[in-house]
């Protein structure tokens, strides 16, 4: 059992090292390491886990790792795979954070980060645009998007408030009022127009 768990831990540590730039970058690496090399999950299972990992709370990569580990070796497997995927970042970021903190007062480091921050702004708005195309799909989701964005910019409310508000609104709109949907849901496609 310990050997098996260690194998899971190491396989996911390898995935953690090779994932550059977040959950979406992880998918091709998982396909190669977990599906093709190890055979721990099928292509379809991986797609399912990834889809659920995207829409459940938490980091997508961690959610997917927990799923695959759980499928292979039960609950200990889920935990081992998850610890594996976070182990390399903990080591690498701790080392880097120490270095960056030490050099952050140098003029050229400040200049570099001034440039980098500009780039980060652009990357964040790109992420918003990409997510928005899939999530803001009809008048209702547009209203939720605008309300939450305005609320988060203008007030000091905890994000938890917005998350609960949005989940409740979604259930009320879809289940109780049977409204909204658009392209997210095939059977109502076109009904909104």
């Amino acid at each position: 059992m310990v050997g098996k768990l260690l194998e899971l831990f190491l396989a996911f540590a390898k995935v953690g090292v090779m994932t550059f730039g977040g959950g979406y970058a992880m998918l091709p690496i998982l396909q190669r390491e977990i599906v093709e090399n190890k055979g721990w999950a099928s292509e379809e299972e991986l797609a399912d886990y990834f889809a659920i990992g995207q829409c459940t709370p938490g980091v997508i990569a961690v959610n997917t790792a927990t799923f695959i580990g759980r499928k292979k070796d039960g609950i200990p497997g889920g935990v081992a795979a998850t610890l594996g995927v976070v182990f390399p970042p903990i080591v690498i970021i701790s080392l880097l954070a120490g270095v960056i903190t030490q050099f952050s007062e140098l003029a050229w480091v400040k200049d570099a980060f001034a440039g980098i921050r500009v780039c980060v702004c652009v990357l964040i708005f790109n992420a918003v645009w990409k997510l928005g195309k899939k999530s803001v799909i009809d008048p209702w989701t547009t209203a939720i998007f605008l309300l939450v964005a305005a609320g988060a910019i203008l007030t000091k409310c905890s994000p938890v408030v917005f998350v609960v508000f949005a989940a409740v609104s979604g259930v009320v709109l879809r289940v109780l009022l049977k409204t909204g949907g658009g392209k997210a849901d095939g059977r109502k496609d076109g009904a909104v127009k």
Partner: peptide
Amino acid sequence: YGLRPAST
């Protein structure tokens, strides 16, 4: 359906 636009 509600969470995705809120997250965005």
